[in-house]
């Protein structure tokens, strides 16, 4: 791990400004992605995980969006100040992306082969024939049976799982160094989800690329991620190696997410689940206290008086919680935590 990280985001803050006021969508988000690793963003809707990904790709509209602070260093170059032309080369070229709904990424009027080939031709400047050959290879790579015939299929003719594979094929066609996958399996059935996750995991091994996997499902995270970044209300609340975070959850919110999950076993059956009371805070102003304090089972007076910074909570593990030790101690009896310890 002595090599510089592929992606390094530093102190990124993002504000949406509209007629009715502004929204602090991201506050001081810093993280990095190593070469060849899967980093997972987890959190509930509105926590900023998708917005972070969109910021990296610069896919947010220009009007109404401002970045008071922060740099996004991709292979050393700041994407925030890159020109739109540079970004066009990077998007779909060096950074591939897949989304929850594959239909939105395809044109319904062209065959999938054409669409993959076009991406390749655009980024590589190769002939149409070569691009089509590449498309065929890609469909093989994502284990689509009978790839030659599928090249001529239209998006609507494919099943959901198949479409998601084709989208992965398209995202990988230009050998990206980083793949950003935003809830890639949320709309899929569990058996298809398992296949797609295994596929993403295999491919990053074969191709040596890095992956940012955005999900709300801790099960998905535990299955494939190397590192996990828990987000809440536009901030990173806990971050670290998956083994460390799940063996020693050190933030009240991570603890809340874990205890809210239904667990198997007769002693858990039909018991009341631990609820997280209240709702996500409004982000229309700067919060200079722990963003989770109002809902936290571990909160003390000092949680409401100052902003906790991300502090080491283990070997490769940081948490923004002044009660980290108390949380970890209280969670030691949790079934999931015990399984990881």
């Amino acid at each position: 791990m002595s090599a510089p990280p592929l992606l390094k985001v530093e102190n990124l803050s993002l504000r949406f400004t509209g007629k009715t006021g502004s929204l602090h969508a991201l506050s001081d988000v810093s993280f990095h992605v190593e070469k060849g690793e899967i980093l997972s963003f987890v959190g509930e809707s509105g926590c900023g995980k998708s917005v972070t990904a969109m910021s990296i790709l610069r896919l947010l509209p220009r009007s109404g969006v401002s970045y008071p602070t922060g740099r996004i260093l991709f292979d050393g170059a700041d994407l925030r100040t890159a020109s739109e032309r540079q970004m066009q080369r990077i998007r779909g070229g060096r950074i591939g992306m897949i989304f929850q709904d594959p239909m939105t990424s395809f044109t319904p009027v062209h065959t999938v082969g054409m669409q993959i080939a076009e991406t390749v031709a655009q980024h590589r400047g190769v002939s149409h024939g070569q691009a089509l050959k590449r498309a065929r290879q890609m469909l093989d790579l994502v284990r689509i049976p009978d790839a030659a015939r599928r090249l001529g299929a239209y998006p609507h003719e494919l099943s959901g799982g198949m479409r998601q594979r084709v989208m992965i094929a398209m995202a990988l066609a230009c050998d990206p160094e980083l793949l950003i996958a935003d809830e890639p399996t949320t709309a899929l059935d569990v058996t298809v989800q398992a296949e797609i996750l295994a596929l993403i995991d295999d491919l990053r091994r074969e191709l040596g690329m890095s992956v940012i996997l955005i999900t709300h499902d801790l099960g998905v995270v535990a299955q494939v991620a190397d590192r996990v970044m828990v987000m809440y209300a536009g901030r990173i609340v806990e971050e670290g190696c998956i083994e460390d975070v799940l063996a020693r959850p050190s933030h009240g919110y991570t603890a809340g997410l874990l205890t809210a999950l239904p667990l198997p076993g007769p002693h858990n059956h039909r018991t009341r689940l631990a609820e997280i009371p209240g709702a996500v805070p409004r982000l229309d102003r700067e919060i200079d206290a722990c963003v989770y304090a109002e809902r936290c089972a571990f909160a003390e007076a000092r949680c409401r008086s100052g902003l906790p910074s991300l502090a080491p909570a283990g070997a490769s593990h940081r948490a923004a919680c002044v009660r980290a030790d108390a949380v970890a101690a209280a969670m030691a009896g949790n079934d999931i935590v015990r399984a990881w310890a």
């Binding site: 099943s159 799982g161 198949m162 059935d189 569990v190 058996t191 298809v192 989800q193 398992a194 296949e195 996750l197 295994a198 596929l199 995991d201 295999d202 091994r205 499902d217 801790l218 099960g219 998905v220 995270v221 535990a222 299955q223 494939v224 083994e243 799940l246 874990l258 999950l261 999931i336 399984a339 990881w340």
Partner: peptide, 22 residues
């Protein structure tokens, strides 16, 4: 087998669990 569970035993890296299309 395919259901994602947040336990270490569910980490099946690189091996396909489910076969075939519906």
């Amino acid at each position: 087998a395919a259901a994602p569970r947040p336990v270490p035993s569910a980490r099946r890296r690189g091996q396909a669990v489910a076969a075939g299309e519906l």
